[in-house]
Amino acid sequence: MIKIIRNFARRIFSGVFKKKGEIKLGFYGSPNAGKTSLANRICQDWLGEDLGSVSKMPHETRTIQVKEKVVLDRDGKKIEFKLIDTPGIATKIDFEDFMKFGLKRKAAQDRAKEATQGIIESIKWLDDMDAVIILIDSTMNPYSQVNITIIGNLVARNIPVLVVANKIDLKKSDIKKIQGAFPEYEVVGISAKNGDNMEEFYEALFKLVKKI
């Protein structure tokens, strides 16, 4: 309870003194949901450069990646973002899973260690966000406890959330299932890889920013 009050007070004061337009936008979700792909897509659209590397192997992003001064323009209104791409949050990590992707034992163990540290770092950053995009792989079961836990924490901290269902270009994608799992939230379906439906995403992002 004390923590919630402290966060609320911090948000009020930082809101008063914050430089207008600078918004810390976090990308959260399970590993391989497409957080870095979406962050890269936004950076490519507005800066012409990538933020981080992507891979089919889970836990490719193992440290927080930040891109500052990303200015988005919509109907003449400019908003400056600080994009914060976080490592995917998981409840378990087995180094042997990385060996299935061809890594040697030592390299897999090192990657697993970095991945656990990355998850701890992601959790610590939850307090520092102004708004968060929750990325969900629309080909997977959305009822994973990780998604529910992250959203629950953001709601408790009074941080606005936008749910994005990624990979809508794939056959197995089921956006209705995601909407059914999170009925209180607007769900935007995109393909970060192909850039599908990005206009609707930017519209929803500008709407999200108004809630801060």
């Binding site: 949050i89 409840t91 378990k92 990590i93 540290q117 998850i119 959790i123 836990t149 924490n153 408790a156």
Partner: peptide, 14 residues
């Protein structure tokens, strides 16, 4: 609580 769940995950990682 959501905070306890996230602490449980953090603890598991440690």
């Amino acid at each position: 609580s959501p905070d306890e769940e996230v602490r449980l995950i953090e603890n598991s990682m440690v």
